[in-house]
Design a protein around this nucleic acid. Structure first.
Length: 790
DNA sequence: GTTAGCAGCGTTTTT
DNA sequence: CGCTGCTAAC
C-alpha cells in the first residue's frame, strides 16, 4: 500500500463496480446475490454477517478473501481467517485457491483457533515459561496427569473423578480464567480443592513443557495482555480478520479476537445464532451481541436466500426453530421447488429403525418412483449421540452396505497411535517424561508400577528426567532383576534414535519404522490375536505414511496432534454415519434423522443440566440436522430402545409435534399394512414384539397430540417405494471361497466358524461376537488375517 | 509383575 | 450390554 497510484487509491475508496472487476479478472463477483456481494465488498470496519443455513456463507467468505487479495488490499499473510474445524479451514483454502487461480498455500494464518494458537505460542513460548517445542496433551494425558495430582492430595478419586476436574478446568479455560482469576463463587468446586489443584496442574504442565487444548488460547491471551509490544506486532500484521462460525466462539476466543482486532477494527464475523450448538463447550451466543458493543457501528449483513434445500425441508426447519425464544430473527427463503415433504416414520424398536433405513438407503440408491437415484456418498444418517451408531453399523455390516463413520475416536486418539507417537517424541526429545512414562513398559519390559515409582523417585531426588533416572538406576544397580537389563536396552535404544534425529537430513520415515520395529512395538501387535490387532497395524502403517508430508520427525510432531482428523477421503461409495454436531457445515442430498425420542433427542441430560436453554440448544441441533438435507429428509423414532442392555420405551420427540404439518408426510411403517396407527396401537404387531416385555407403553407412543395430528394429514402413499422381494441370489461362482466349518476373520467381529452358507451370505459363529449373518465379501480366511502386512 | 475374572459403572455433543 | 478398574491368583 505504500506506493499507491491514483487509480489504486480510488479503488480503495470506492468499491469497483461488478463489471469493472470482472473485466480485471474477478469473476468471483459475478455470481453473487446482492447481500453476498455486499458482504464481499464491505472490507473496512467491523462487519457482522448473519448467514442462515445454506445461504452461501462460505462462498461469500472466500470471495471476500479473494477480493482482499485481488484488489491488493492485503497480502496473503496479512489475513487472519479463523475456523473451528480443520475441515472448514481446508475447504476455505481450496476454494480461495480456486477463486484466485493459484494455491492458497501462501495464507499461513488460515486455520482453526487452536492451530493458529499453537503457531503463535511456539514463537513466544518463553513468555509463559515454556520452550517452543512444548507438547500438546490430549484429553487422555490431561486426565492421567490430574489423576496423579488428585491421588497425591489424598482425595478419593471415586467420589471426585479426575474426569470431572478436567471438565471443570476446561470450562474455566474457556472463560479465560487462569488459576488466580477463577472467581470465588467457584471456590466450592471439586470439594473445595478445584482451584488449588488447577494451579498445581498448570505448574506441573510447565515443568513438563506441555500444554492442553485450552492453554493454546489462554497462553496467547496471557502473552497479549502482558506484552503490549507483541500484541501490537500482530495487530499490525493481521490487517484483516475473518471469523467463521462466530456463534460458537467462547469467551477466551472472543477476547483473543478482540485484542487482535481492536486497533484497526477490520473484523468480519460470520455466524448463525440458530446454529449455535456448542453451548456445553463454553460457546456464548451472547458474543454476537457483545460484538455490537465492542465494535460500535458494525455493519450487519443478512444472507437469507437458501440455495441448498427444497421448500418443504426449509419450511419444516424454519417452523421448528420458530419455537425458540430470543432469536435474532432471520427469514430464510428459497427460489427453488417445494420438493418432497419431510418424511416421518415411527418404528417398533431401534433395530427395526436401522433395518428400515438400510433398505431405504439401498432403494434410494437404485432410484425410486419419486426420485432419481442418489449415490451412497450423497446419503447420510445423522444421530444425536454416538452410541446410536452401533445399531446402524451392525445392520449395515450384515447386509453388506458400505458405510463410513465420521467422528469416532480420532485417529490420533487411538491407543496405538498415541503409543507410537510417544516413541517418536522420546526419540526427538528424550526429556519428554510423559512419553517415557507411556511407553517404558509397552510392550512389557518387566517394569511394573513399583519399578516405575522407583524411577520417579530417583528423578525427583536428582531433579532429572525419567530417562536419566533410568540410566542412573541401571548404573548404580538400584534396579535389579529382569527389568534392569531390559531398561538398559531401552535407554540405549532411545539414545541411538535420538542421535539419529540430530543428523541433518536424516531419513525420518525409515527411522520411525526402525523405532517401532526395534522397540518391539509392531511385534507386540503382530503377536496379538485379538480382532482389533490387524486394524491397529493398519493404523500404524497409516501413521508412517503420514510422515511423508513432513521433512522430519520434529515437524511432524509439532503439527500432528491438531492436523490428524480422521475424515480420510476414500474414494469408495459409502453412506455416512455421524453425529449432528459433526454434520454442521455439511450437506447431503438425502438425510436420515433417527432417534427422535424424548430423552434421547432432546437429550434428557441437556434439559436437566441447562433447562430451557438446554432444550433450545437441542432444538437448534434439530434445525441443523434438517437443514443438512438438500432433497429428502426422513425423521424417525422408535418406540422401544435397548439402553444399557435393558429395553426401555420412549415417546416421540416433542420436536416432532413442532414440525409444521403441511410440510411433513407420515409414512406407514413396514409390518403394519392394513392396520395403520389409527386406534392407538391397534394392529401393532411388529415381529419381535413378543421379545419386548413392556408393551403397555406402546399405546402412549402414538397418543401424543402431535402424532395424531400428523396422522390425520398422512398421505396415502405407504412408502417411498414398494419393497422389492429380496430374492436370494444363488450364484455358484460367488460361493466357493468358503465352506461350512471354515475359519474366517471379520474386521469387526473377529474370528469365527462358518455355520451355514446361503447365496453370498454366510452364517458365522464368531468366537467373541456370537452368531451373525454376513456377506461373504466382508470376511477373509482366518489364515489370511495372520499376515496382514505392516 | 502379569493376567484373568469380576464388580460396578455409565453414554451428549469436541478443538 | 460393554467398558474400566480393581482384586485374586499365577
Amino acid at each position: 500500500m505504500s506506493s499507491t497510484s491514483d487509480a489504486e487509491a480510488f479503488e480503495a475508496a470506492v468499491p469497483l463496480s461488478q463489471r469493472a472487476l470482472a473485466a480485471r479478472g474477478a469473476p468471483y463477483l459475478a455470481d453473487l446475490n446482492p447481500a453476498q456481494r455486499e458482504a464481499v465488498e464491505a472490507l473496512d470496519g467491523p462487519v457482522r454477517m448473519l448467514a442462515g443455513a445454506g445461504t452461501g456463507k462460505t462462498k461469500a467468505l472466500t470471495a471476500r478473501i479473494a477480493h482482499l487479495l485481488v484488489t491488493g488490499r492485503a497480502r496473503p499473510n496479512e489475513i487472519l481467517a479463523v475456523t473451528f474445524t480443520n475441515k472448514a479451514a481446508r475447504e476455505m483454502k481450496d476454494r480461495v485457491g480456486r477463486l484466485i487461480g493459484q494455491a492458497a498455500e501462501g495464507m499461513p494464518w488460515m486455520g482453526t483457533f487452536h492451530s493458529i494458537g499453537v503457531k503463535l505460542l511456539r514463537r513466544h513460548a518463553e513468555l509463559v515459561g515454556l520452550k517452543s517445542n512444548f507438547t500438546i496433551l490430549d484429553t487422555d494425558d490431561q486426565v492421567r496427569l490430574l489423576r496423579q495430582l488428585i491421588l497425591a492430595e489424598n482425595i478419593d478419586e471415586k467420589r471426585w473423578p479426575p474426569r470431572m476436574l478436567a471438565g471443570l478446568i476446561d470450562n474455566w479455560k474457556n472463560r479465560a480464567w487462569t488459576p488466580d482469576k477463577v472467581p470465588s463463587a467457584e471456590a466450592s468446586a471439586f470439594n473445595f480443592r478445584g482451584t488449588e489443584i488447577y494451579a498445581a496442574y498448570q505448574e506441573r504442565l510447565r515443568t513438563l513443557n506441555a500444554v492442553d487444548f485450552g492453554d493454546l488460547l489462554l497462553h496467547c491471551l496471557t502473552i497479549f495482555r502482558g506484552h503490549g509490544d507483541v500484541l501490537e506486532q500482530y495487530q499490525r500484521w493481521f490487517r484483516f480478520i475473518l471469523v467463521d462460525e462466530y456463534q460458537d466462539t467462547n469467551v477466551a476466543q472472543y477476547l483473543w479476537l478482540r485484542l487482535l482486532a481492536q486497533a484497526h477494527r477490520n473484523i468480519c464475523c460470520v455466524g448463525d445464532d440458530d446454529q449455535s450448538i456448542y453451548g456445553w463447550r463454553g460457546a456464548e451466543v451472547g458474543n454476537i451481541l457483545r460484538f455490537e458493543k465492542d465494535f460500535p457501528g458494525a455493519r450487519v449483513i443478512r444472507l437469507e436466500q437458501n440455495y441448498r434445500s427444497t421448500g418443504h425441508i426449509l419450511a419444516a426447519a424454519s417452523g421448528l426453530i420458530a419455537a425458540n425464544a430470543g432469536r435474532l430473527g432471520k427469514t430464510l427463503w428459497t427460489a427453488g421447488a417445494a420438493g418432497e415433504k419431510v418424511r416421518l416414520i415411527g418404528h417398533w424398536d431401534g433395530e427395526e429403525e436401522a433395518r428400515w433405513i438400510g433398505e431405504e438407503v439401498e432403494a434410494i440408491q437404485r432410484g425410486t418412483r419419486h426420485m432419481e437415484p442418489v449415490s451412497l456418498n450423497g446419503q447420510a444418517i445423522l444421530v444425536r449421540a454416538s452410541h446410536q451408531m452401533r445399531a446402524f453399523e451392525d445392520r449395515f455390516l450384515s447386509i453388506g452396505l458400505p458405510y463410513r463413520v465420521i467422528g469416532g475416536p480420532r485417529f490420533y486418539e487411538r491407543q496405538e497411535i498415541r503409543d507410537a507417537m510417544a516413541y517418536l517424541r522420546l526419540a526427538v526429545s528424550p526429556d519428554d517424561d510423559l512419553a517415557f512414562e507411556r511407553v517404558v513398559n509397552v510392550p512389557k519390559r518387566g517394569l511394573g508400577e513399583k519399578a516405575q515409582a522407583g524411577l520417579a523417585r530417583i528423578a525427583r531426588e536428582n531433579g532429572s528426567t525419567l530417562l536419566d533416572a533410568a540410566r542412573a538406576a541401571v548404573a548404580t544397580g538400584r534396579l535389579t532383576g529382569k527389568g534392569a537389563g531390559q531398561l538398559r536396552q531401552f535407554c540405549e535404544a532411545v539414545d541411538r534414535w535420538h542421535r539419529e534425529t540430530l543428523v541433518p537430513g536424516y531419513d525420518h520415515i525409515r527411522l520411525a519404522e526402525a523405532i517401532l520395529e526395534e522397540s518391539g512395538y509392531t511385534g507386540m501387535w503382530q503377536e496379538d490375536k485379538t480382532p482389533e490387532a490387524p486394524g491397529r497395524l493398519e493404523n500404524l502403517k497409516e501413521l508412517i505414511e503420514a510422515l511423508e508430508g513432513f521433512d522430519n520427525l520434529q515437524g511432524f510432531l509439532e503439527h500432528v496432534s491438531l492436523i490428524m482428523d480422521n475424515d480420510s477421503e476414500d474414494a469408495e461409495e459409502k453412506v455416512t454415519i455421524m453425529t449432528l454436531h459433526a454434520a454442521k457445515g455439511l450437506e447431503f442430498p438425502v438425510v436420515f434423522l433417527p432417534g427422535w425420542e424424548d430423552g434421547l433427542f432432546p437429550s434428557q441430560r441437556s434439559m436437566d443440566e441447562s433447562g430451557l436453554s438446554g432444550l433450545e440448544e437441542e432444538r437448534r441441533l434439530a434445525y441443523v440436522g434438517i437443514t443438512r438435507a438438500e432433497r429428502l429428509c426422513t425423521i424417525s423414532f422408535a418406540g422401544n430402545r435397548r439402553v444399557y442392555g435393558q429395553w426401555q420405551s420412549a415417546l416421540p420427540s416433542r420436536f416432532i409435534d413442532e414440525l409444521p404439518a403441511a410440510d411433513v408426510e407420515v409414512l406407514t411403517p413396514p409390518g403394519l399394512y392394513g392396520g395403520g396407527f389409527g386406534a392407538a396401537g391397534a394392529g401393532f404387531a411388529a415381529p419381535g414384539a413378543s421379545t419386548i416385555e413392556d408393551r403397555a407403553s406402546r399405546a402412549d407412543v402414538y397418543n401424543s397430540p402431535g402424532w395424531q395430528r400428523m396422522q390425520r394429514n398422512a398421505g396415502s402413499r405407504p412408502l417411498s417405494q414398494p419393497r422389492e422381494a429380496r430374492h436370494v441370489v444363488i450364484d455358484l461362482d460367488a460361493v466357493p471361497a468358503f465352506a461350512e466349518g471354515d475359519r474366517v476373520f471379520h474386521r469387526k467381529f473377529g474370528y469365527g466358524t462358518v455355520e451355514a452358507i446361503e447365496g453370498d451370505k454366510l452364517e458365522v459363529s464368531f468366537d467373541k461376537a456370537g452368531v451373525k449373518h454376513v456377506v461373504a465379501g466382508f470376511v477373509v480366511a482366518a489364515e489370511a488375517a495372520d499376515d496382514i502386512p505392516f
